[in-house]
Structures are given as structure tokens and as C-alpha cells.
């Protein structure tokens, strides 16, 4: 069983690296955006240096995209093309297959965080304490969990084209509403109240608290957990329902 898990994980990791489109959109694009938009001045945002603040934003943006796109598109593709049927005939328990997929995506997310932080520090001179780097990275990784659940949820869709469109809309929508592209501190009051409930805002809020030497907002962490459970529950409910009618 462990052997099957490792073999499955190895394949998933290879596939991620072979997918150039995904590498471009989830790693290179956030880096490019980061350089374009972090060049104007040294002002602060929410008590945090702008280039550090925006590093968190763009890392969160990359994590959101890769978690949603990688998982959902692959799940839809494998189901619609009959690959998951092929797997169901083998003794590999579906849960092992699924855990391999999610854990590899989590590993990819960790890699993304490390690359973004290295770029921020060595290329754009973002200076943080070791504790801040680790803490911010940790909370970004935790914050990406609800997006893995969203990716799984969107992975239950029947058509790859639909999934692609929904992914785009949701990623863009959450990026704007959650203050990823444009700081939420500059939103009108009513929109800000709304944006503070998005998982994208919440994912970036703990890392920013750490950068601004603010305490962790456990209320936000609870909301993230609720999102995670909600999307996971919804996804497994839909998958069960599909099974019954097949």
C-alpha cells in the first residue's frame, strides 16, 4: 500500500513538472506580476513594507491558481477519459490515489512558497527574520488547504471546458475580492467587509499579521477551516451521488 502511494505520488509529481502551462501560470506569472507591481516606491500597506506585502499577495495568487487548476482539471480529465475506471479495477484504494494527488499538490505549493520567497529576498531585497519567513510560509500553506478542497470540488464537473471557465472566473473573482491584486485596505468600506470573508483574503491575512508583528487572528483560521470542511464535504457528497447513478 505504501509502495503504491509512493509510486502514485512520484507520477503525480512528474506530471506537474511536465505541465509547462501550469508552471507558467502558477509560478512565472506571479513572479512577473510581483516585479511589475512592487516597483513603485517604498510606502507601507497595513503596517507592512509594500514589497513584502505584495510578495504575500502574489504567492497566495500562485497557490490559489495551482491548487484549483491542477487538481480540478486532472480529476475531470481522468474521470471523463475513463482513467478512473481503469484504476477502480485495480486494488489501489481510491482514497490512496486521492491522498497522493492532494499531498503532491501540497508539496508543489510548498515549493512555490519557497521559490517566491527566495525571489523576494534575493532579487527584490525583502528582509524578514527567519521566524517571519517560516511563519508566513506555514500560514500560506495552511491557507492553501481550502483551495485544494475547491479544486477537488470543481474536479467533480463533467466537462473539462466548463471546469476551465469556472476555474478562471473563481480564481480571478477571489483574487480581486480578496485584495490579492489591489490591497483590501484601499477598498470602499462595504466591499472591504465583503472581501474579508473570502478564502483568498483569509489565506493572506495570517502571513501579513506575522510580517506586521500582529497576533494570529484565530477567528480567521476558524473560517478557513470551515471553508475547507465545507468544500471537502460538498465534493465527497457529489462524488458519492455520481457513483450511485453510474
Amino acid at each position: 500500500m505504501m509502495g503504491a502511494y509512493l509510486a502514485q505520488s512520484k507520477i503525480e509529481l512528474l506530471r506537474t513538472f511536465r505541465n509547462r502551462k501550469s508552471i507558467f501560470f502558477t509560478l512565472l506569472m506571479p513572479i512577473i506580476f510581483y516585479f511589475i507591481m512592487s516597483q513603485n516606491g517604498a510606502e507601507k500597506m497595513g503596517g507592512v513594507e509594500w514589497k513584502a506585502y505584495f510578495l504575500i499577495s502574489m504567492t497566495a495568487y500562485g497557490l490559489m491558481g495551482s491548487s484549483i487548476f491542477n487538481l480540478s482539471l486532472r480529476l475531470v480529465q481522468e474521470r471523463t477519459q475513463g482513467w478512473s475506471h481503469q484504476l477502480k479495477v485495480t486494488p489501489l484504494p481510491p482514497i490512496v490515489y486521492f491522498i497522493a494527488k492532494v499531498s503532491v499538490q501540497l508539496l508543489v505549493n510548498l515549493g512555490q512558497i519557497v521559490v517566491m520567497f527566495l525571489v523576494g529576498h534575493f532579487v527584490n531585497n525583502v528582509e524578514l527574520t527567519a521566524g517571519q519567513w517560516v511563519g508566513a510560509g506555514f500560514w500560506l500553506l495552511i491557507g492553501s488547504l481550502p483551495f485544494l478542497a475547491i479544486g477537488t470540488l470543481f474536479g467533480t464537473m463533467n466537462k473539462i471546458e466548463t471546469a476551465q471557465i469556472i476555474n478562471q472566473i473563481v480564481t480571478l473573482g477571489l483574487s480581486f475580492l480578496g485584495g490579492i491584486f489591489y490591497p483590501i485596505e484601499l477598498f470602499p468600506e462595504w466591499l472591504r467587509k465583503f472581501g474579508e470573508w473570502t478564502p483568498s483574503y483569509l489565506m493572506a491575512s495570517e502571513p501579513r499579521n506575522i510580517l506586521g508583528n500582529q497576533p494570529i487572528d484565530w477567528g480567521n483560521v476558524v473560517i478557513l477551516a470551515v471553508y475547507f470542511l465545507l468544500f471537502t464535504g460538498l465534493a465527497s457528497y457529489i462524488l458519492k451521488k455520481k457513483e450511485v447513478y453510474s
Binding site: I11, R15, W83, H85, V89, T90
Partner: peptide, 25 residues
């Protein structure tokens, strides 16, 4: 089982696919 519609994973080599299936048993 060899199903009617044999589908293969994308971006995986023939050798990798065979090894992957060996790991399931």
C-alpha cells in the same frame, strides 16, 4: 481488465505507466 476504452494518463511514459500499475499489486 482491459476496458473497452483504454485511456492513458497524459504526460506519462509507457515505462512509467507499467511500473505504476505494478506497484498496485
Amino acid at each position: 481488465a482491459m476496458l473497452q476504452e483504454v485511456s492513458v494518463m497524459d504526460t506519462v511514459k509507457v515505462s512509467e505507466l507499467i511500473q505504476l500499475f505494478r506497484s498496485y499489486y
